[in-house]
Simulated assay, not measured.
Amino acid sequence: MIYYVGIDISKYKHDFCIISNAGELIVENFSFQNNKIGFQSLLEQLKPYNKSDIRIAFEATGHYSLNLELFLVNNGFSFIKVNPLIIHQFLKTRSLRRTKTDKADSITIAKYLMSVPYKPNSDLLYTFFTLKSLCRARESLIKERSKFAVLLTNELDKSFPEMKPFFNNKISETLLYILEKYTSTKHISAMKDYESIRKLSHGKFTYARFAQLKELAKNSVGFHNENTDLLISTYVSIYNDFNNKIDPIEKQISTIINVLNPRMLTIPGIGEISAATILSEYGDIKNFSNPNKMLAFAGLDPSINQSGTLESNGKMVKHGSGHLRYAIMNSALSILRFSPEFYDYYLKKRSEGKCHRVALSHVCKKLIRVIYSLEKNNIDFNPSLLK
């Protein structure tokens, strides 16, 4: 006999039930705390049954379920995580009434588990979770750093408006080094440590550019005072602090992704960070039975409106992880620069009258189908096989 265990996850406690494959509600209204004692009480409830006969499911609720997941894995149990939206839709198909309690939700989860194939968690569960945490932390820090990049740019627009265009409107390591040592145009025009700047730029910042920057500073139309100097110094310091926090995170991401070595890294234009973000959000891609489910997971599938003889495709549903959609869209933009096959596909969609973003969304869908094929079959990217 098979036993289906539905667990409703919350921050401080979890509720669960057990239903047999005959439909008998064996355990109902059992709650346990989100701590060691609570987890041990769950084990006591599961002891009478063979582990191979137990199916466990709970909703994907961020990090609240992580400790329970690791506890179950360490004790020889498997489980699946379900999108809460799917559970909500499943409940609507079974009843017009909505009884929203933790105990009722655990029963709904168990009944849903009975209706679908059981594809348990990956052995790389903790690795994927760690990678996701690192990628999301990096993304958050970069967004915060961008705010100070804007503030720094605003001050430079007032005090030395010619400087950032001179550096191709990028906040480079060389620009930060100069501003860290010389906050005013007066000091920049009198710079003498060319050799230090040359070494920092690995020889890319030539003496000719050094002399040009000094001349720009000497004839700048910018205005500055002590307050401007203070703000520039502050923003440069904060920006460098963010860099010092982001760099070790990126190195750790690189270490993990190189161990996992996903086949999507063989696609021209997909780097380690993009691959890590996509893989960490999806988890084990082998758990997806087809690429359409990967599209749905990312919220890139179109909504469909159908009534009688009328049918139309709407906008992307945008359910699922926004981090995943962002990574896929950015990867698609990068791939267009490096892959003739993907770029030709993009041009084909544009020739059909589709605007840039719609054409790009088609590239994203094609990219997901390619990633699915590469990871499922463990093969490298081969442009000649693209259709």
Rank of each mutant, 00 (worst) to 15 (best):
L66D: 12
R369S: 12
Y4C: 04
N290D: 14
N225W: 05
I285L: 15
K111W: 08
Q40R: 13
Q33F: 05
K158E: 15
I142A: 10
K164M: 15
S41Y: 01
T108N: 04
L230V: 10
F77S: 01
N243R: 02
M329S: 05
K119N: 11
S172I: 01
D123V: 00
T153G: 08
L260I: 15
L216S: 06
E250L: 11
P161Y: 02
K348P: 06
L66H: 13
A110M: 07
V236N: 10
A217Y: 06
E311G: 13
S52G: 02
T153K: 15
Q89Y: 10
K199M: 13
H202C: 11
K103V: 06
N29V: 00
S140Y: 14
N377E: 14
H202L: 15
Y194M: 09
P262K: 07
K51M: 03
L46P: 14
A22P: 06
R145G: 04
K251C: 06
L141C: 03
Q252S: 08
A359G: 02
N74H: 05
L141N: 07
I238S: 03
D301Y: 04
D301Q: 11
V317G: 02
I249M: 13
S303P: 07
N292I: 08
P48I: 07
S220P: 09
Y346H: 04
N34W: 01
C364A: 00
D241T: 15
Y235W: 12
E180A: 05
L385C: 05
Y326Q: 11
T99F: 11
Q89E: 12
E162C: 11
N29T: 00
K132G: 01
N34H: 04
F338H: 15
F205K: 08
R209Q: 15
L300N: 02
S20Q: 05
I37W: 02
G299R: 13
Q252P: 09
